[in-house]
Amino acid sequence: MIDYDALLNTASTMGLRMLESGAEAYRVEDSLQRLCRAYGADSCEIFAIPSLLIVSLCDPEGHSHTRVRRLYRRGTNLWQVDQLNSLCRAVCQGTPPFPEVDGSLARLAEAKGYSPLLQLAGFAFVAAFFTLLFKGTAADALCSLVAGAVIFFAKYPMERHRANSFFVNGACSFLAALTAIAGVRLGVGQNLDKIIIGAFMGLVPGVAITNFMRDVLEGDLFAGITKLTESLLTATALALGAGIALSLLGGAA
């Protein structure tokens, strides 16, 4: 006899963590489907969109057990996606008792990502290398290195205070454009456009665009549309932020 409640809790927690880390909807549905089957629950329905997860099981007596989990915050954490994927595979094969799986999930949730310093380096170098890639000069790359660092210093505290992502992206883009204009005015950088575009690349909705396509492909139109909207909003926020900075200061001219 399967403990349906425990299965429901464990499975929904695993799905929730996957969605929070930025896994595609179909991956979550597929993984949970496999998980429930591995524990012997044959009749299970799973529905995942970026802001909601529903897991419903029906036991042999005909009682339904349903759990709805609501997601408020989402990010991208590829390490978590990979680890949860491996954990799900291992659990499906070994079907360990539920407390053990819950323990693994809790340990994963506590795992720390890269330190803020490394993340800072990440944003700064994404900006610098993209400026070089888009044919900016070394001096431009230096300016966008600083602009990328500014983005991190703006983004990190704002995300801690749970500001909405439209505002965060707009403000980051505004500050990055200000930095770029300052760099050009001071005579360090030459191509304002290359510097700002480089700095943009740390913020562009690449993850949303990629996953949107994969969701739509799997027939998860709801999840896909949510992500498409997200990427359009992000692009608008970026354009608005930099646009305000440029129109206030009149560009480099």
């Binding site: 944003f123 170098f125 290398f129 890639l133």
Partner: peptide
């Protein structure tokens, strides 16, 4: 090379190990 290095830096942002 620039593209690869930019992606490496992006991995730091996305917590890819």
């Amino acid at each position: 090379f620039y593209a690869v290095m930019a992606c490496v830096a992006f991995c730091l942002v996305l917590n890819h190990h």
